[in-house]
Amino acid sequence: MKIQVTKSILLKELATASKYRGREIKGGNTIGIPFISLSASEEGLKIRATDNQVYYENILPLHIVGEEDLEEVHVVIEAGQVALTQKFDEVLRKFPSEKVEIQVTGEKIILTADNVNAEVSTMDSPFDEAPTGVEGESINSPKTFFDNIITKTVFASSESDSRPLLKGINIKGDGTTFTAIATDSHRLAKYEDAQSIQIDNITIPAKPFASVLETFSDDGKVMLIPLGNYVKLQQEDKNVFIRLLDGNFPDTTKLVNVLDTVSHISINSKELINAIDRAIPFAKNDKGRPVVQLEMFDQGIKIFSSAEDGSMTSNVSINKSNGVVISEKIVLNAKFMIDSIKSHNSKEVTLVIESKGKPVYVLSEDKSNTQLILPIKY
C-alpha cells in the first residue's frame, strides 16, 4: 500500500475512530480489535475500528472544501490495507509537513515528508467485516432530531452493570408517535414526538449512542436502520453500527401516570434550578448523592436543606397552579431534579406532585418531555 495524505485530516479521523478501538482488559484479554484498519482502494481511504459494541467505518473523500478551494485529502498510489497502532498516530503527529507519504513494506509502515523519515511496526492481521442482517424500518431525520433524544433521555439511563438493559434508551414508533425512554429505576425520562415513524421496540446503549452521534455532522440528515442485533447510523460515507441490548425493556406505561386531579405547579426553570443548587452545600447524602427537601405553600414552594454546620432555604414563586396544595415535605435527589429541569430547555416547567410517597413529575410546556423522579424515604 502506498498513499499520500493530508496529515491534519487523517489525524482528526483517527482520533474519532480511536474512541472505538479495541483495548486490553484485566487478565490480558482484549475487547474488540486493538488497532485501526486503514484501507486504500479505488473506493477511497477507508478507516475502521471496533470495540465489539460499536463498529465504526468511514470513507474519506478525495477532496474537501477548504477556505479558498477544494483541498486534497489523499492520493492512492497503490491499494492495500494496514493495521495502525496508537504509536502510528503519535509518530504522524510529529511530522512538520502537512503532506505525508505512507508506504507499507512487509511489517513496516514508512512515513516520508520533506527531510523526515520514520518507520512504525504493523501486523498482518485481518479486520472483521461490518455487521450484516435483515434491515428493519429506518428513520431518516435531521441530526437535531437525534440530538433531542439524547438531550432529553440519556442522563436518566443507568450506569450499573447489574441491570445492563437499563443502560440503554428504548425507542419505538407506531406511525403516529415516536417515543424514547430511559430509566435507572430511580428516575425516568420520556420523550415523545408526533412523527410518522414506524420502528420496532429496540434498546440502544445510551452512552455509545450519544458518543457516535457526536461524530456526525450537524448539517444534513442521519439515517438509523435496525439491522439484526445492531442498529446502523449512516451519514454520507460514514456507517457506524451499535450492538443492541438484549432483553425486554421494562413496561413503563403504568409508571407514567400524570393525574389531572393532583397539584400542578408552573414555575420558572432558572429560579428553581438556582434554589436547588443553593441547597446542595447543606444537603444530606443518599448513596453519595445530595438530597434536598421541597415543601409547598399557597404562593410558592420552599427548597431547603440542613446539616450540623448550617442550613439553606429558598422560596420560589409559582407562576400558576391548580389542584390540592400538599402540606407534606418531599425529599428529592438534587442532581436528578436539576438534570430533569435542564433537559426541557425551557423558561418554565410544570411540577406534578401527589404526595411524599408518589413520583414527582417534571413536564415540559408542550408535554412532549416527561421526567419522573422517585422521592426518597427518610
Rank of each mutant, 00 (worst) to 15 (best):
K302E: 12
A283P: 13
A279Y: 05
F304D: 11
R278T: 11
F304Q: 05
F282T: 15
I280Q: 01
K287Q: 14
M312V: 15
D298E: 15
F297I: 08
M296R: 12
I276L: 00
A307M: 04
N285W: 00
I280E: 03
E295N: 14
P290C: 03
Q293P: 00
I276N: 06
E308A: 12
K284P: 01
N274A: 06
I273Q: 02
S311I: 04
G288V: 12
D286L: 13
Q299P: 00
E295K: 15
I280H: 05
T313S: 12
V291L: 14
F297W: 00
K287P: 05
A307P: 01
E308I: 07
I303V: 14
D298I: 11
I273T: 02
E308P: 01
A279T: 07
V292C: 10
I303L: 11
I280T: 05
D309S: 11
P290Y: 03
N274G: 00
V291Y: 15
D309R: 12
D309H: 10
A279N: 00
D286C: 09
I303F: 10
G310D: 09
F297L: 11
G288K: 12
S311A: 14
G300V: 03
M296W: 04
G288W: 06
S306R: 06
F282H: 12
L294W: 14
N285K: 12
E295I: 12
G310V: 05
D298M: 07
K302I: 05
V291T: 15
I303S: 07
A275L: 03
N274K: 05
F282M: 15
S305L: 08
E308R: 10
I273C: 06
G288Q: 08
A279P: 07
F297S: 07
F304L: 04
A279W: 02
R278H: 13
A279R: 08
I276R: 01
I273M: 05
E295T: 13
I280N: 02
D277E: 11
N285S: 11
R278P: 03
L294K: 07
F282C: 14
Q299T: 10
A307Q: 10
G310H: 12
G300W: 08
M312T: 15
I301H: 08
G300N: 03
A307C: 04
I303K: 04
F297Q: 09
S311H: 06
I280Y: 11
A307R: 10
I276Q: 08
G310T: 11
P281A: 02
D277M: 04
G310Q: 04
R289Y: 07
F282Y: 15
N274W: 01
S311T: 10
A283Y: 13
F297H: 12
R278G: 02
K302S: 00
N274S: 02
P281F: 06
R289S: 10
M296Q: 15
D286Y: 14
G300F: 05
I276P: 04
E295H: 05
S306A: 08
D286P: 00
E308V: 08
S311G: 06
S306P: 00
E295D: 06
E295S: 10
I273V: 13
E295P: 04
F304G: 07
I303H: 10
A307H: 04
F297R: 04
S306W: 03
A283F: 13
K284F: 10
L294H: 08
P290S: 11
V292I: 15
R289N: 12
D298A: 14
V291N: 15
A307G: 15
A283W: 09
